[in-house]
Simulated assay, not measured.
Amino acid sequence: MKQSSPRRLALVASDVARAQEAAVEFAAAADWHTLDDADLAVVLGGDGFMLQTLHAMLDSGIVRPVYGVNLGTVGFLMNRFRAPAKILQKLHKARAIAVSPLIAEIVTREGTAHRCNAINEVSLLRETRQTAKIVVEVDGQVRIPELVCDGVLLSTPAGSTAYNLSANGPILPLDSRTLALTPISPFRPRRWRGAILPDRSTVTFRVIEADKRPVSVVADQKEIRDVASVSIATAPKQALELLFDPGHALDERIVSEQFEF
């Protein structure tokens, strides 16, 4: 029997078999609407598919609160899979977490301009065997005139436990209003391990010897190659709303991550 709900729900599922099988169960458990007509989206899949869905919302301008159901591997942005009827009955108890994406203004060596959103991080990575050389500016002031490295990234609190953590960056509480600036295998200055910045900061990276030492930019899942400069800032007016079960919210997971060995 289908559950009635005071909210108009949309169902979005990954192409993987587990998610498609679950989608059949969910489809029979409620009356569903298109994303245009809904006021909340239930997303079936893993973290990667969740990021893909959130980016599609940002690109289309149709942004809805999202409740993720984990049918992937890690599921950091998702909730535990349960029977559809149980999930739908308790959706109204889900806790909302606001996540502000980053906006990256990218200029390639040829002068082509790109604009990309990032929910987790924006990372610069060397394209060849040669190390990258990058100028690091914060709010128009040069902080590192020449960072010699494999790359560097700027992470949101939501993304601080992803690539940023793998690069030995700090874990940031969701309500900290900060960003993590983290080098990737830095060679010079050798002792620099990164910085924590206010989320109102604008960070600019300029590639030195871009022809000889090409660098790519990756904004979550989108890559732009052969870049000359990247300017990154937070976009609070485009904040996304992720919904979590009580006791399993993203901020609690971020705290718990710091006590795992």
Score class of each variant (00 low, 15 high):
Ala94Met: 11
Leu242Met: 09
Gly169Glu: 07
Ala23Asp: 07
Ala233Asn: 00
Val255Ser: 12
Tyr67Arg: 11
Arg82Lys: 14
Ala22Arg: 11
Val63Pro: 11
Ala113Gln: 13
Asp220Ala: 05
Ala30Leu: 03
Val218Pro: 05
Leu154Phe: 09
Ile106Asp: 02
Lys90Gln: 15
Ser166Arg: 05
Arg95Tyr: 00
Ser5Asn: 15
Phe261Pro: 14
Arg200Phe: 05
Lys212Ala: 07
Tyr163Pro: 10
Ala23Met: 11
Pro246His: 03
Arg253Gln: 09
Glu146Leu: 06
Val99Ala: 01
Glu257Asn: 15
Ala38Gly: 02
Leu91Asn: 04
Ser4Arg: 15
Asp150Gly: 09
Phe26Glu: 08
Asn117Gln: 14
Leu147Ile: 12
Asp139His: 07
Glu137Gly: 08
Leu154Glu: 07
Ser176Lys: 02
Thr131Arg: 15
Gly72Cys: 10
Thr131Trp: 13
Ala180Ile: 02
Ser231Thr: 08
Ala162Phe: 03
Leu197His: 03
Thr34Cys: 09
Ser229His: 02
Asn168Arg: 13
Glu121Arg: 00
Ile196Lys: 01
Asp39His: 01
Ile232Asn: 02
Leu174Pro: 08
Arg191Asn: 15
Ser185Tyr: 08
Phe76Lys: 06
Asn117Asp: 11
Lys90Tyr: 03
Ala113Phe: 12
Ala228Asn: 14
Ser100Asn: 10
Asp251Gln: 04
Val66Gln: 01
Ile106Gly: 01
Asp39Ile: 01
Val138Leu: 11
Asp37Ser: 11
Ser14Val: 10
Glu127Cys: 04
Ile119Val: 13
Val122Gly: 08
Leu242Gln: 01
Ala28Trp: 11
Asp199Trp: 12
Gln3Gly: 13
Asp47Lys: 03
Ser14Gln: 10
Phe26Tyr: 14
Pro65Ala: 06
Pro214Met: 01
Asn79Ala: 06
Val16Phe: 05
Leu165Pro: 08
Val217Thr: 11
Leu197Ser: 07
Leu40Phe: 04
Ala98Asp: 09
His248Leu: 13
Ile144Ala: 03
Gly247Gln: 02
Asn168Gln: 12
Thr204Ser: 10
Gln141Asn: 14
Gly61Asp: 06
